[in-house]
Simulated assay, not measured.
Amino acid sequence: MTAFALAAQEREWCARVRALAVERLVPLAERGAPGRVNRPLVAALGELGLLARVFPEGGPVRVLDLCLLRETLAQVSTDAETALALQGLGACPVFWSGSAAQRARWMPEVVAGRAVAAFALSEPDAGSDAAALSLAAEPDGRAPDGSPRWRLTGEKCWISNAPGADFATVFARTGGAPGSRGVTAFLVPADRPGLTGAPLEMIGPHPVGTLVFDGVPVTRDDVLGEVDRGFGLAMRTLNLFRPSVGAFAVGMAQAALDAALAHAASRTAFGGPLKDLQSVSHQLAEMATRTEAARLLVYAAATAYDTGAADAVRRAAMAKLFATEAAQYVVDAAVQIHGARALRRGHLLEHLYREVRAPRIYEGATEVQRTIIAKELYREA
């Protein structure tokens, strides 16, 4: 296949996922408490084998599969989509760089949906500038075998699945070097002494909170990968998920477009259906064009990543940038076509309107993506 066409089996798989989501995941999502981890939903993602697609046996996930999964789920249930994505984000560093003991302890539980993961990178003063993180891993002597020990002190903020996760991938400063050097990734179980947190009330319904570290003990056995090399692991994780954030946005845009098309065909105004008004039909055409352009950028970026293309980073940034901005436009336009009914609490578009804003910020804001694209253009030149 090319970057711009899906094979028949891929389309059939997406249709099966969509049907499963409608039957099994939507009811569980609707019963969840806003802003809290929905464990029955996460468990269902495991039971249906969808988390196993994110962490396949024998090799890394195919990014195109991840994008198709996130796009398909987003069209039906953004709660289910986000629950799956957060598991992937929090556990990928363990899947890639965890020790045999760490992987044996946590990955089967994550894949089964029995353990919930968090990715703890952002801080109150280190969001888009992730390299400015200040959570300190202070030396705390040596273990009996001579390996180092630390205590984590500081705060993480805007952490998905916090504080309800069973463990977090935590990035802390072990070295004195500024910027990205001297950062180490730790796997920190939720029951460690000194670790607390609180939920944050956000515009969207997903679990987001703070994590506070008051001398939390960690040892060499908790390190993911190499000491002082954790920032690269964080960036590798974000680079993997960046195209699929675009896929999430495409799924929301498609849901909004479908709703707008159905409403324009059935709603009568000024003596005929809305779809016969040129202003509305042209708006729908623009919405469809932007959605399809975003989809193609996402598929191209995913294929570039999967094939190891030299321009994969640039394509991923382009896909994330364009798709999230396009989804914002499409959802807003769909609200306009629906009018006041779309602003009522519980309407699909009211839900999407709140959902669509955050992806333009998290995992690299729009402005950060433009910076990445420019840097990659200069590098390629």
Rank of each mutant, 00 (worst) to 15 (best):
F4Q: 08
S97A: 13
S160F: 06
D221L: 11
A120N: 07
M235E: 14
P148F: 10
Q102E: 03
G272S: 13
I372S: 04
A309N: 03
L238N: 03
A137P: 06
L121P: 01
A74N: 07
P144C: 09
L348T: 00
Q87Y: 04
E155T: 15
I203V: 14
D228G: 08
A310V: 15
M252S: 01
E376R: 13
V110Y: 02
F119W: 09
G127N: 11
G308A: 05
G32A: 14
V356D: 02
A15L: 11
V110T: 13
E380A: 12
A21C: 03
G225W: 07
Q75N: 01
Y362Q: 07
V22I: 15
R142F: 08
A259T: 00
E109G: 13
D221V: 14
V170T: 05
R16M: 10
G154D: 07
V331H: 00
R149V: 14
C92V: 14
V227L: 06
R220P: 06
G90D: 06
P34F: 04
D140W: 09
A104Q: 11
P199Q: 12
L238G: 04
D125K: 12
R105M: 13
V218D: 04
D311F: 04
L296S: 11
S77L: 00
A8W: 13
E23N: 09
T366W: 06
P60H: 08
L240K: 11
A126T: 15
Q283Y: 02
A304G: 04
D129C: 11
A234E: 10
R315Q: 12
A172F: 05
L296T: 12
D140M: 11
G175L: 15
E355H: 06
T289N: 10
R370C: 04
G232Q: 13
A342F: 00
T219C: 09
F213K: 04
G88R: 10
A185F: 05
E376H: 12
D306N: 08
A294T: 08
L86G: 03
I372L: 10
S128C: 13
V54F: 02
P207R: 10
G179Y: 11
R181F: 14
R295P: 00
A115T: 15
M235T: 15
W106V: 15
A293R: 14
W13M: 09
Q254E: 07
V335N: 01
A21F: 00
E138M: 13
G182W: 07
P207A: 06
L89H: 10
P108S: 07
F55M: 11
L257N: 00
L211D: 06
A185I: 14
V223Q: 04
A3F: 11
S99L: 07
A131V: 15
V170Q: 00
E109W: 12
T2G: 05
A358G: 02
I373N: 03
D214V: 15
A29R: 05
V218M: 03
E350M: 08
G246S: 05
A136D: 06
R354T: 05
N161E: 08
D191L: 10
R181M: 14
